[in-house]
Every structure is written in C-alpha cells, then in structure tokens.
Design a protein around this nucleic acid. Sequence first.
DNA 1: ATTAGGG
DNA 2: CCCTAAT
Length: 574
Amino acid sequence: MDSFEYNWKTPNESAKSFQQEPEQVVGAASVYFASEEEAVGVEQLLAEPEYDDVVDTLLDFNTCAFSVPESYFEEFSASESVLTKIDCDALQRDLNEEDKTREKYLDGLSNGYDENHCSISCEDYLLDIELEEETPTLHDVTRDISCIGNVNLENQLADSDGRNCGIHVLKLSDASTSSDHDAVLLDNFDDMSTDKLLKVFRNMFGHQTSVTDKQCLKPNIIFGLQNQEISDKNFCFLKSSLDSSENQGAKVPPAGCENLLTASTAFASIFNFRRKPRVQQVKRREHIQWNSFKCLSSAAGEIQLNSPDKRDRKESRLGISEQYLKCKPLQGGFGRRYHHRGAKASSKPLRGGFGRRYNHRGAKASSQGFGRGNFQVGRVQIPPGLPIEDRLIRREGCLSKYSRAKKAHDGNILSAEAQDDPSGILSDQSSDNTSEDDWTIRSETRGTNQDRKHNKYWSTPEVLKLVEGVSKYGVGRWSDIKKMFFQSSMHRSPADLKDKWRNLLRASSQRLQSRRGVDAKKKHGVPSIPHDVLNRVRELAVIYPHSRQRRSRISPTASSSNVESDNQCVSMKG
DNA sequence: ATTAGGG
DNA sequence: CCCTAAT
C-alpha cells in the first residue's frame, strides 16, 4: 500500500486512523498538508517563541535531512484543537529526550529511511537557498505557511458565499494510478456525489479516506488543490477554469502572496519525503529543482523559461551545480568504487557546514607522468592531468568537438592498454548504474575517466612477481621492486606495489578465508590468490615485519637462514 | 622523490 | 586507488 507513503504517520498508524470515527480523522496529510488545521497547526507551532529551536532541532543541516519524530505527529493529530493547546512542557521534554535519539534518526536517514520516522529531504530547499540570496529562509517559509492557510480560509469564505470553485482538474496524480481518464470537473462541490469527491480526494492525496462527509472532504480537497496548483503551476497539472467569469476569486492565490509560489515550492521541497523509491525520488528532485530554478531565474529575469527537454535540463542543472554549489560529488565510474570521490572543492563544508562529506574525494587524474598533485583554481581544485580545455569544460558542463575527439582518443589508448594485459580484467564502466542523482558529467567523461588511474586487478603472475621482489629486496623498497620486476608495466607504481603487498598481507593473515568472500570473488571472475602464495607472503611478513627503516635496525642474525640468503642478496645488490 | 599509513 | 605526512 504505497498510498500511505506520503502520510505523516507510519502506515500502521494510518491504518489505525482509518478505523476511527470520521470526526477523529484529522485527515492524513500528504506532501502538502491535507487540512487547514494541520497547516495552521504547524504554523502555530513554529511561530511559538518557545519553539524557536524546534526548527533547528528538526532541520539538521549537517545531514541535509529533516527529521520529525513520531511524537510530533501524535501531538499533531491527537488533540482536536491541534497545536494551540499542546502541553509546552511535554513537547519540550520530548525535544530534550529526542536529542539523544536524534542521531539514531539521522543515522537511519543516511542509511535510507527509518520506518518509524518521517525523513524529509531538504536538499531541494537548500538548493533554493543557494540559488538566490533572497530566497526565503526557513523562517520565511514557516511564516508563509500562514499565507497558505489564509488562502484556504479565504476560499472557504468564498465558497460559503455560494461562489463556485470552477476548476478543471486535468491531472491530479499519476495517470497510472488514476482511474479517471476524464478530467474531473469540480464546478460545484455541492453537486458532486460523495463518491466523486472521494475519488478526487484519492487522486489528489494518493490514498483513500474514510471520511464520507462532504463538508469534511471539501476543505481538504480545496486545500490540496491550492497547494498543488501553486506548486505545479508551471507544469499545468492543474489549471484554472477556462471560464474566467466563473472562477473569479476562487482559485488564485490572493494578492499580496506573490512569493507564495516560490515559498510553497520550497516548502513542498522540504516536505518531500525520502521514502519514495529512488527513481521516483530522483525524478521528483529533478522536477522540483528545475521548478525552483525556474522560479528564481524568472524572478531575476535571467533565463528563458522554455520547458526543457531532458538534456537541456541536465545541462542547466550542471550549470547550477557548478556555478552555485561548486561541491557536488563527481563519482568515478570504474567498476568497483571504494569511496565516493567528489570534486575536490568540497573539502570545506558549504554554507556553514551542512552536508558532511565523508569520503568524497577529489577527482584526480594523477597519472604517473604528472605526479600526484593537484592545482587549484579558485575554490575548485582541478585535476592536473586534464588539458586546459577539459578543465574549463568541467566547469562549463559542455564539451567542444576537440575535447570529445581527444577523449575518444584517450579512451582508445586506454582500452588498447587494457588489451595489452590479458590477465588484467577490464573494469566495466558501463555496469555503473548509479542513478542520475550523482552530479557527474558522466555522460561526457565516460570512456576516459581519468579520475582513477586504472582499476586492473592483480593477476597471479603479477602477485608472484611482487612476492619475488619482496623476497629479494625486502618490504619497503618498492621503487626498487618496481624497477626490477615491473619495469614493463607502466601501471603498478611503487605505491601500488606497496598497497598490493598490504592487501596480500591482509589476505594472508586472515585465518580462514570466508567461504562467502571466495565465492564472491570467483563469481566476479577474480582469481583468488593461491594459498601457497599467501603462505609465502606470510613467511615474508614474518621476515620483514616492518618497513625498511625499522628493519635496518634489526640485526641480520636475528633472521632465519632462509632469509639470510635473501638479505645477503639484497646487500650484495644494494 | 619515496615511503608509510590512513582512507 | 588516493591522499598526506614524514623522511
């Protein structure tokens, strides 16, 4: 029953509320508040000076997430008088207690979602903030909630005056879920059957309601219409009646709420639940972000507002991200991803530190010829390996012909090099099915991917060579080993040797290789390291327990006879 | 420039 | 595989 997804309450609670008397049903809120009471309740809650910190409590910029514990909702829905009579002490206590468990919520958020709590993404809202300084702050948004509430009040008044709410609802929700292929005409609520109203309600909020009273349904639907209209205005999901004589004063946001569009968009963004499937989530975010951007930009009169096709939109988004955010992660596309690596600009948290970046690393192109350093342009650190065109292009988010050709050329070289090594397994970049959520210019960079040097698995012969080299030179003289045993292979830098040795050590010290791990490797076609090799590694580990520096202090006589010869060999050579 | 060690 | 500090 994904129709409950947008409810404030958990599915269980919602189900429970369905069995209650209609009067007790406050009307489960959807993405938007389903009832005026709830909207006003939130407004009042946030407006209360005692709850000034509520916003801060709920909105944690460090995680870019909005966490609302259940207790709040209970407070919301329990009392008929909504929030004005909430026991302040109780709420405060809840807040305090919640401090402790808040991290748990947030952890849950970062892991996906927590069944018991609504997690709400505010990234879209933050994007809004980023785009325009005059974009409302959260306080503005909360203030504007009253605006939304007032709209409802006004319209209720208008409605009670006998005026019609002439509205054509062209498409209130996803067509696949809508059983109404025809537009629903809400010319007159009073003329509509209860069934029809229920249908409208379901289409609007995505779930059914047990409320059968027309008088209860009407405000909900009106309110939903207003919000939906406001939010999705640009996409014409709903449009005002063509008959202007009929709908005067009925459906338009009242004057003086000019910024309602923006505000409510931001508002809706805040309350955009994260519990939807990922794909939907991405779509929704894209939608909202574009909408927000459009609103803001049109206000600034900067860009034309043609509805973009997908590609244009993407480019625009890139423009936004590059220009305004400057810190969106840029993921490398190689088959196995160890960490998220991001455009290095984000080493410093953006805007007072929301968004902990755990292991986002800079996109690096440290091929051997260029050393391992980066250089920095402004706040953005650019990989040194790229030609200047590409550096600029990364900022612009579009590619010139030249660079395309260049990249293709590089890609050929890369693949040719890969073919050169039959034992190496090509990293398949195509299997990278990361969603469009990442802000990479993947479509452009794919094929070259200089973010990572290579990702060639170590073949058994290579491992043998390494072991041989270590037994000859000892642990730590990686450059020597590289020179002697890996001269031909241009990849495998000394550091790589060192890393591989460390991995070998790790593998060898693992008592019983977990059956699962081995199977997984076999499944992926990765040749597991022969046991005798691992044994040899372990031997060498005993012989050369530490790095070269330390080892030099160990008296050669302390080593076993087997090592003795090796050491002699080393000393003879070096 | 190399290496060790953390990530 | 990348990054940084240390040498």
